[in-house]
């Protein structure tokens, strides 16, 4: 009972998280105002239900330039694997309001489709529109410049990726805004470049941001084994423990960059 009460309380608390426009900025009686008010009603309906889809269609019929409706209508298609419909809708939102929706399209291209080239193009265009301050990823975990660095890395340009990581971290560090996993991803990039000392230094920094993360210990153990250090197995055992306790990269929709699995850890331990 207490659990249900907590869930209810939390869902009420987090309700304002859904992006809600201020409809009062539109002139009373205008199609924009009517569309906006209907849009707010549509947000109340379950995401992906036919009712909410019909509402968003009505919003679009009232005001075909109301970008938020295209975006919100697109979300369940993305989450349910219909990338054709998602892309048509999100493209329209971006066309109407690029400074608002390029971040979302870039993030989703990166996360759901590993379309690194497309994601990088979206973030680069957004950087031009926002004086190099593109904002955060949809889940709030990444500065989009870190995402750009990950795109460069996955496209094979590790040196350019490192430069982008460095610039973003240098920018955010004085503001105490280094991301939750920035050092981990930069460390893995250095690992791929065989810069083991640099990678270990980044994993050490990662522990100052987030002391319990299986991935940090997993990649540290890989380097320790490479260097024939005796404590590689012990480090991997720590990674295993953390993974089992749930201290790991995890996302409800897709695997995250540099995410590891329990079999990855076990294969390492069997090889020792």
């Amino acid at each position: 009972m207490i659990r249900y009460a907590l869930v209810l309380l939390l869902s009420l608390l987090f309700r304002p998280v859904a992006a809600q426009p201020n409809c009062l900025i539109y002139q009373a009686g205008s199609p924009e105002r009517a569309a906006c008010e209907l849009y707010l009603q549509a947000l109340e309906l379950p995401q992906g239900s036919i009712q909410s889809q019909v509402y968003f269609d009505r919003v679009i019929a009232l005001c075909p330039t109301f970008a938020a409706a295209y975006h919100e209508k697109s979300v369940p298609f993305l989450k349910r694997g219909d990338f054709l419909t998602w892309k048509k809708l999100i493209d329209e939102a971006v066309r109407l309001q690029p400074d608002r929706y390029l971040a979302d399209r870039g993030w989703c291209r990166f996360k759901f489709l590993r379309d690194y080239r497309g994601a990088l193009a979206d973030i680069t265009r957004l950087q031009q529109l926002t004086r190099n301050q593109p904002g955060q990823s949809g889940d709030g975990n990444y500065d989009l410049r870190i995402l750009a660095a990950l795109c460069q890395r996955e496209l094979g340009d590790l040196r350019a990726a490192l430069t982008t990581f460095d610039a973003c971290i240098a920018d955010n560090k004085p503001l105490d805004r280094v991301g939750l996993y920035d050092y981990l991803h930069r460390g893995v990039t250095k690992l791929r470049l065989h810069d083991y000392a640099g990678a270990l230094a980044d994993f050490k920094l990662q522990r100052t941001v987030n002391g319990k993360l299986a991935e940090t210990d997993y990649y540290t153990a890989l380097i320790l084994r490479q260097q024939h250090q005796p404590d590689a197995s012990a480090r991997m055992q720590i990674a295993r423990q953390l993974w089992q306790q749930g201290y790991r990269l995890n996302d409800p929709y897709m695997s995250m960059p540099d995410e590891i699995s329990l079999p990855d850890i076990d294969r390492f331990l069997q090889q020792q």
Partner: peptide
């Protein structure tokens, strides 16, 4: 195939995208 949003609601109330 994927959800059709143009089926009238009275026939389609439980239908979901996907």
């Amino acid at each position: 195939t994927w959800a059709k949003a143009d089926i009238p609601l009275p026939y389609n109330r439980r239908y979901q995208v996907g």
